Computed example of a mutant assay.
Amino acid sequence: MSRSPELSRHPQPIDLDAPLHRKAGPTAHALRPVERASEALTPQACPSPRYLTNHEAAAFLRLSPRTLEKQRVIGGGPRFHKFGRRVMYALADLEAWAGERSFETTFDPEYLDRHPGAQRDEQ
């Protein structure tokens, strides 16, 4: 049983990008960078707000994702958007929320108004 060189399994190299071999969906080709729909049309034409997931927003603010979840229920957290079941945070809203929480000192009247626990020491 000798094999002939002409009977090799793949006489031509396989082109993984050819339509015959390309898979549909997110596993199309692992090494090719994925092109987003917004980048494919016009990458700089319409500057739209960037949305972050709960985990990404928590990492951006250096908070626990659970803290953001609690603040959505109780209140006092950054503005959020609901897209179906998904909760998303606009980057501009996160920056505005963080900017509202800047103080000069703990004796700042605005700080005392927002943090009732700070007035405990006076009682």
Rank of each mutant, 00 (worst) to 15 (best):
Q71D: 13
L41M: 07
L94Y: 09
K82F: 11
R72I: 03
S38R: 08
E56M: 06
T53K: 13
G84H: 10
A40D: 00
E39C: 09
E6T: 07
Q123L: 14
L61Y: 03
A57M: 04
E122D: 08
L112K: 14
T53L: 00
D17H: 05
L68W: 03
H10T: 05
D113Y: 09
A92V: 07
A57I: 02
H10N: 13
F60I: 00
H55I: 03
R101V: 03
Q119A: 12
S64Y: 09
R114K: 13
D93L: 02
A96M: 09
H115P: 07
S64N: 11
R86I: 15
E6W: 11
Q71G: 12
A90G: 14
M1S: 14
P33G: 08
Q123A: 12
F80D: 13
K23N: 06
D121E: 10
H21N: 14
L61H: 06
R9Q: 10
A24G: 07
L63P: 03
H21E: 11
Q119T: 12
R62Q: 15
R72C: 08
Q12V: 06
D113C: 12
S38A: 15
T42P: 03
G84Y: 11
R85L: 03
A24D: 11
G76A: 04
A30C: 13
L68H: 05
I14N: 00
A37E: 06
A98T: 07
S8W: 02
S102D: 02
E95C: 05
A98W: 03
Q12C: 08
T67I: 04
Y51H: 13
H115D: 06
R62P: 00
R66Y: 06
L20C: 13
A24S: 14
A40C: 04
D121S: 12
L52Y: 12
S38P: 01
T42D: 11
A98Q: 10
L31N: 13
G76W: 02
P19I: 05
P116K: 01
E95I: 05
E69K: 08
T105R: 01
R66I: 08
K70T: 09
L94R: 01
P26V: 15
A24I: 13
K70G: 06
A45I: 03
I14W: 01
H81T: 12
T42W: 05
G99V: 00
S48P: 01
Q71S: 10
L16P: 11
H21Y: 06
A58K: 02
P26G: 15
A18Q: 00
P19V: 01
R66H: 08
S48E: 14
D121L: 11
D108Q: 08
P13S: 03
N54Q: 10
W97F: 06
D113G: 15
S102N: 08
E69V: 08
H21T: 09
T53E: 04
F103Q: 04
L41C: 14
R62M: 02
P13F: 06
G77E: 00
R120V: 04
R85D: 09
G76K: 00
A18H: 05
S2D: 05
Q44S: 07
H10I: 02
R101H: 05
V87L: 10
T27A: 15
R101I: 02
A28L: 06
P19M: 05
R72S: 13
F103V: 01
P109A: 11
L94D: 01
L16V: 11
P11F: 14
P116S: 06
T42M: 11
E104D: 07
A37K: 07
H21Q: 08
L31W: 14
A59T: 05
F103S: 02
P47T: 09
V34S: 13
